[in-house]
Amino acid sequence: MEDESKTPLPEDHQDISMVRQLLAVKRHEKPDDAYFDSFLTEFQTRQRSEMLSQSARGLLMERVGTWWWSVGGKKWVYGAGAATAAIAMGVAFRPNAADKPAISENSQPPAFEMNLQLPSPSESDLRPPAMPSRVSKYGLIPVSASSLQEL
């Protein structure tokens, strides 16, 4: 745990002010003006040598990175992400997409349909069966007394 969490104690102001005065004196500790004059030249030289030592691929990557940033690379990434998500949602929630099999004009019928080719019914098959000649117009068959006795 860092010491910031401790409760601050009262300071000895006189001692602290002397410490602060001594620290303030440190601002005079700096190199002479010649150093600052030559700093820029050294910086430029270092930059140039860095560029020369860097590989062509590295330079290309750096340039692409800078260009990508300047055209708002983030926006493009977000846009592409949103478009991909929209397409994915569209595919996933397409109505009856899973139920309907794809049918084309040239597609063959399923195998079970191919093997069941029954002959077409003839005219006689479609005609209703003939009524017996003894049937009355009410659909009842007349019965004689002798036939009842047999029963």
Partner: peptide
């Protein structure tokens, strides 16, 4: 190198 102005610095004089 320490800047010669240190001797005239009020903080240094007070310290």
């Amino acid at each position: 190198d320490v800047d010669s102005a240190i001797e005239n610095d009020p903080d240094y004089i007070e310290a």
